[in-house]
Design a protein around this nucleic acid. Sequence first.
DNA 1: TAGGTGTATTAACGCGCGTTAATTTATATT
DNA 2: AATATAAATTAACGCGCGTTAATACACCTA
Lengths: 347, 347
Amino acid sequence: MAERRITSQDVADLAGVSRTTVSFVLNNDTRFSIRPETQQKVHDAAAKLGYVPNASARALASNQAKAIGLIMTRDTHYISSDVFLPQLIGGLLDSVKLFGISLLIEWVEPGQQLQTYHKLTGSKHIDGMILTISRDDDTGLKVLEDADIPVVLMGTVPNSQLNSVDIDNAASARKAVNHLLKLGHRQIACITDAQLPYSSATQRLRGYKQALAAAGVSIDESLVRFGDFDAESGYKAMQSLLKSKHEFSAVFAASDNISFGAMEAAREAGLDIPGDLSFVGHDDIPLARFANPPLTTIRVPAAEIARQSCQLLLELLTDKVSPKQNILLETELIVRNSTKEKEGTNR
Amino acid sequence: MAERRITSQDVADLAGVSRTTVSFVLNNDTRFSIRPETQQKVHDAAAKLGYVPNASARALASNQAKAIGLIMTRDTHYISSDVFLPQLIGGLLDSVKLFGISLLIEWVEPGQQLQTYHKLTGSKHIDGMILTISRDDDTGLKVLEDADIPVVLMGTVPNSQLNSVDIDNAASARKAVNHLLKLGHRQIACITDAQLPYSSATQRLRGYKQALAAAGVSIDESLVRFGDFDAESGYKAMQSLLKSKHEFSAVFAASDNISFGAMEAAREAGLDIPGDLSFVGHDDIPLARFANPPLTTIRVPAAEIARQSCQLLLELLTDKVSPKQNILLETELIVRNSTKEKEGTNR
DNA sequence: TAGGTGTATTAACGCGCGTTAATTTATATT
DNA sequence: AATATAAATTAACGCGCGTTAATACACCTA
């Protein structure tokens, strides 16, 4: 301990070359060809000293931080119950490690978007950012469109110029609802995954209505409730639905989290799943398969979204000019045991 | 766009003072008292220009990155199914925001600990690090003890000189098992949360045995299985347990994740929970309450662990010398419906 | 041998900021 | 008024590195 910091100068001294040469060698700078034996000397010296470049100095000199940021736009309360986050982070870590860059996690306090985005882009702490789903009314997004920092949206915001990676939420919801329709259900309730300003909620609700309309089923707004990310909100939404005494034989819960809460509320009301009530979730979180009954749901390739977001961002960082991309990934219906053909009376 | 970077010199020029004064004002340096009206001028200028200090330059000059790292030591596969991670990150973001520092997430590839720790401490990208639970045989930990970078362990490693924040895993497991004992169960199986090199698994297994021993129940090793973080592993462990034909009326699943998997396997074998088999989990993940039946479990204050880890780390960053701390947080038994008094025959 | 043509290496500058030591200005003391 | 003391401000250096423009060196050609 208390050992002096080892700089590239130390490496240069030991190798008997200049600091510049060290920099060229360690950064694989091909514009200047260094004799192989010199390169070896440098590498040996660096290894012997256990040299590690100072990240700040490097960032300052090169004007690139070699780091990207994952920007969370929700309350920490909701972050805590975000069952997707581990998959996202796992996927991001995979990609990021591959390219030797760092991952920062930043939290944008609701209502502070403008300041925070400005600070994030201005501080040059990160070269680019990945935004987790945000709300349609996120006023800060325009700041990002103008800022000279690459941004990839994990999610969709209508009329935005930003690059994005997402699933087709409406199509995904249609898959879920169509499954229920095919089983003979006609009175299908819907609990959204979040409040309406969140675009995933808007889109999934739209998909729900489209599927119904396409099947010639009239839409009954009294069968729609709005969740708020966590299972608790699904639980309450379901209670509200049951209390309303409207009839329905199936529920499309627009996230598995919501679905877990809603199913519990149904059980407490004495309903059998799928006997009295069929459930389709959305997301296919790791625990969905182990729900009781195992949850029929829509699989979202979360880690893949993370990976592609990361890759797209890295492309933007290197090829400065590239056309705007909006990647949509496929989802898949996973049929388990929470759905069943409609028969007899319900509720 | 293409607007020139705004530096502290620009702020100084506009305010009509020197760059040094700007630095003193913006950093609230109390050693040099700046006249209030001068301070105001500086603040106004900074606000008008939208000045944001360059993080790298600041870090380089001050030799502190104003950032800490959350270090993950598991395979990304397991990170993806880490139901705790969101709570940890939520808690960390809370604290970190409070102190105006950044949070980095780093992943240590298994087998690369030494290199990675060395690189992490050497690059000065972060001022301190929080390690998520690691294995007893993590050889890299010694590097960290010697490195001149503060470290807080979220978890426990025996005989380590590192600071840590954790729960008392053995005591926690005893609470769980004692609950089952009190209900009259004597043949209690155990599925650990992870393989044995992970200290949480070792400790929880120890607690399980301690509770049994204290109650005068002989320990049957054939009732013990080892999980591996995710629900799938719990599922398989339970199948193995059932296939063994050993009798038991209750299961202590050392994580809720494991419990979800194990319960599903039990159900598939036609067992009723808690009629035929009682389950106690561990962790109280957000979905535990919404399991079917709602899972009796041990509540781990995950966000609080994160917060205290962060706080401890920040203390280490400021007060250079402080005694080694090993904080243990309390856990709490949450009784729900997956446990029941033993009666009649089982299995 | 003088003049070229690469090739390999280096000296020196700047990135933007924190910070010390020195300087100027205001206030109190004799 | 002259001096001592404190308050306010600044000039100048260095953090460690990337990078450009210049230099030294080897090898060919005439």
